[in-house]
């Protein structure tokens, strides 16, 4: 985690480890999505533990990053208006989901499509910063997470996914 400019991730924040890694990966090509991934990690982290010194230190640094990103992306409507931001993150999550789903239906099973299913499920988690998820989003998240785990296990065991 040091490469991201953040202190080492406290064990209490293991639940946001993957979303912070996705944020780093998306920084260049999808900075708006990366911003909301960090916002989700921030909110989740604050709910988990904002009292112990190592967690406070981590959250303060994460907040510094968020404030710097907001300043940098300040003229982007997807940052200044959360309703636009919500649509942007939702569209990107759907794009990830559809890519993986198309590969799945075409019988092309590979690491990239597993990652896309998993990232889509993480980005649907991120949508909770804007409010309650729609039933459709809940279903997509469940399906994407299950597919990612199922195909991963099949490939690991040398089996062909059905």
């Amino acid at each position: 985690m040091a490469a991201s400019g953040l202190p080492p991730l406290p064990p209490q924040f293991k639940a946001v480890q993957h979303i912070l890694r996705s944020a780093q990966e998306l920084d260049k090509r999808e900075p708006v999505v990366a911003y909301y991934c960090r916002l989700y990690a921030m909110q989740t982290g604050m709910k988990i533990d904002s009292k112990t010194p190592e967690c406070r230190k981590f959250l303060c640094k994460l907040m510094d990053q968020l404030e710097a990103m907001k300043k940098q992306l300040g003229d982007n409507e997807a940052i200044t208006q959360e309703i636009v931001g919500c649509a942007h993150v939702e569209n990107y999550a759907l794009k990830m989901f559809l890519y993986a789903d198309n590969e799945d239906r075409a019988g092309r099973f590979h690491k990239n499509m597993i990652k896309s299913f998993y990232t889509a499920s993480l980005l649907i988690d991120v949508l909770t910063v804007f409010g309650e998820l729609t039933d459709e989003n809940v279903q997509h998240r469940k399906y994407a997470r299950w597919k990612a785990a199922y195909i991963h296990n099949c490939l690991k065991n040398g089996e062909t996914p059905q």
Binding site: L39, S50, K51, L59, L66, K70
Partner: peptide, 27 residues
């Protein structure tokens, strides 16, 4: 010292909450 520690933690927690609210234009 326990209550002082708790009070400091609570102040810093409030500061984080305030920064988060400002970030999201909720103030």
């Amino acid at each position: 010292t326990g209550s002082v520690g708790t009070s400091v933690a609570s102040t810093e927690q409030d500061e984080l909450s305030q920064r988060l609210a400002r970030l999201r234009d909720q103030v």
